[in-house]
């Protein structure tokens, strides 16, 4: 396990470096150079040169990369081209919306789908088991923003129970107020996520129920639920853990859509605006933080999976 930890950590580091290079290269491919964002169409050549010098676009690409990377190593993400505000604090403020949104939705979806998935598998002959299976099919087909639009129209505009969009100006100063703003977004994300998670948990439960080891445990006098609890939970968890990692990462990165629906000042909407404004430092900063989060989620999921299943410790990457 220690060998695995070391190898997996090295893999984390290497993939992070690859990702950073990829982000940098991708952004150089954007039409024009970063200085365009600062200028109007009527700019004189002198103004263009000055702007290029300001953002460092006049220097060689490798030098630009090393400068950026050196700053990153000191957790300095630079300043926005547009607002001149430092990127780091802006991202931190945005995360105070996106992280609670992601984690709470994830927790709600996990609880709902665990119950629903096990019920769908064990009661596949009852009407409610079939109903759950049917609903879980919708998970991959329903766009998140559509669910959001419908929920807003019913619960915010129609019934006026909750705010339809926005987030308190003073952030979490009044937690109840902030949570009220996040309720509909959380329900939206959790609804869609639990539908797709239910499919995986149902299928893992079915695999466990049909397994030989469960039958042998029962052949030695173990009751069905005892055998399911002792042997089924761990075995069923192995495939589910990697799915959970992927779902969590997807939700974190996919927050851009739900943040748009509900007008939330999160990381996703920051990225969207930065892309529209060609605000390179902001784009790079958001991607840097997102990549870090996603790679760490993958790292934790892989470690957790190998703690449960010793057979996997022989292979290095996420796929078995």
């Amino acid at each position: 396990m220690i060998v695995y930890l070391l190898r997996r950590s090295a893999f984390l580091l290497v993939s992070f470096l690859i990702a950073m290079v990829a982000i940098f290269v991708l952004l150089r491919l954007l039409p024009g150079d970063p200085s365009n964002a600062l200028l109007s169409v009527t700019a004189t050549p002198e103004q263009i040169a000055a702007a290029q010098a300001q953002v460092g676009a006049d220097r060689p690409v490798l030098e630009q990369f090393l400068t950026w990377f050196g700053q990153l190593a000191q957790f300095d993400l630079g300043e926005s081209f547009i607002s001149s505000l430092p990127v780091g604090p802006e991202i931190a403020a945005r995360l105070s919306v996106t992280i609670p949104l992601t984690l709470i939705s994830f927790a709600v979806a996990l609880v709902v789908s665990l119950v629903a998935g096990v019920v769908a598998a064990t009661r596949s002959d009852r009407w409610y088991g079939i109903l759950i299976s049917g609903f879980s099919q919708l998970g991959v087909a329903v766009p998140v923003f559509w669910v959001g639009i419908l929920l807003v129209s019913v619960f915010a505009v129609g019934l006026r129970w909750l705010p339809s969009s926005g987030f308190p100006r003073d952030d979490w100063a009044d937690p109840a107020d902030a949570l009220r703003s996040l309720t509909l977004p959380i329900v939206t994300v959790a609804l869609v996520m639990s539908a797709s998670l239910t499919r995986y948990i149902r299928s893992a439960t079915l695999d466990v129920m049909g397994s030989d080891y469960l039958r042998s445990a029962r052949a030695q006098g173990s009751g069905y639920s005892e055998a399911l609890w002792r042997h089924g939970v761990r075995n069923g968890a192995v495939p589910v853990i990697s799915i959970l990692g992927i779902e969590l990462a997807t939700t974190f990165l996919g927050a851009v859509v739900v943040e748009s629906v509900f007008g939330l000042p999160g990381l996703g909407s920051m990225l969207l605006r930065a892309i529209e404004q060609h605000d390179y430092p902001n784009i790079q900063g958001v991607l840097f933080v997102s990549t870090l989060v996603v790679l760490i989620i993958g790292f934790v999921a892989d470690i957790a999976q190998r703690l449960v299943d010793p057979r996997l410790r022989l292979s290095i990457s996420g796929n078995r």
Partner: peptide, 23 residues
């Protein structure tokens, strides 16, 4: 359930799958 193990016990064909792989 009380019969299994105490009265009759089974050895299956494929021990790799009959044993819990994670225990």
């Amino acid at each position: 359930v009380p019969l299994r193990g105490r009265v009759a016990s089974v050895v299956f064909q494929e021990p790799l799958t009959a044993l819990d792989p994670l225990m």
